[in-house]
Write a protein that binds this DNA or RNA. Structure first.
Lengths: 156, 156
DNA sequence: CCTTAACCTCAATATTACTTCAGGTTCATA
DNA sequence: TATGAACCTGAAGTAATATTGAGGTTAAGG
């Protein structure tokens, strides 16, 4: 089933974009307010989107999944050339930056998991039988010493 | 430098707990409101904490780092025996549960990173030269087909 | 034409996790 | 005992990310 050019180039209503991108209409309004997406208006003041917006929304959602806040996504998107379809190099630059952030987050979480594994193993989450920290009372006020999990909060 | 028993068993003021746990006084009030920590009161109505609270706060912060919302942490902590120092088994149960959540989150992020790597490599974040998705127009309305990054938002 | 779904704006509400503020009390110490 | 630091409560404010609602307009089909 081939699509007629007339269909293919038609602009999308906000409802259509919502349905096809999987975000709520109100979210599209919200994103527009934040400068993440743009729309034109028909003569009745209703939003009309180019198909490119679906790509944009997809990108926004990916970036969000990596943990990037909307404001940063907006900032990144705002560096893209206005009014025309971004180049491959543009996208590569954006996604490469986000990948770095993502790597950082992953590494932090993995470090945390290691700590947690150690702590489960040695029982240091217990206040009673961690081989490294028991007995707790003796550690008080002693300056540097074993400090697991959280160096500040653990200063007991 | 040995600590006198009188010092060692003294209860802590909210300011002391704040200083030693690294969280703000207001945060300790907040946590108490949410049921995450408990305090006794002196005759002037000021909070007095047992040293155990430092452990609790440390645990809360670790759990938060894994991405667990406060409400869930509160719920988990509420399953601990009231009024006495939790056992090693208690702590193991909690941290084991949190570790699972953490593993899930890590795995999701790694999956995302893989997708992102693929997309950067193939250029599919570009609307112009992704070998899998180009040319975009041809994909419209065609039912199942290559769906990268986000299956819904990508339905262009 | 008429109806009704879809759309519009702007303001308010929701959630999470706190912080700040106002107005008043208690504690420690000189 | 006087003074200033630390503490108290309850309410309101903040930031991010939206959703919901009120009140009114536009578009599309019979």
């Amino acid at each position: 089933m081939t699509i007629k050019p007339s269909e293919r180039h038609r602009q999308l209503t906000v409802g259509e974009v919502a349905a096809r991108s999987g975000v709520a209409v109100s979210t599209l309004h919200f994103y527009e307010n934040k400068g993440l997406i743009q729309s034109e208006r028909n003569r009745g003041n209703q939003r009309r989107y180019s198909r490119e917006v679906l790509r944009r929304v997809a990108i926004i959602k990916v970036a969000q999944r990596t943990g990037i806040p909307l404001a940063s996504i907006a900032e990144a998107l705002s560096t893209l050339p206005q009014g025309r379809t971004p180049t491959a190099a543009d996208w590569r630059r954006l996604s490469a930056g986000w990948k770095e952030d993502l790597d950082d987050r992953i590494n932090k979480l993995i470090g945390l998991r290691d700590q947690l594994n150690t702590c489960i193993g040695c029982g240091c989450l217990s206040m009673q039988d961690c081989p490294l920290r028991n007995p707790w009372d003796e550690l008080s006020e002693q300056g540097p010493g074993p400090r697991l999990l959280d160096p500040v909060a653990d200063a007991d």
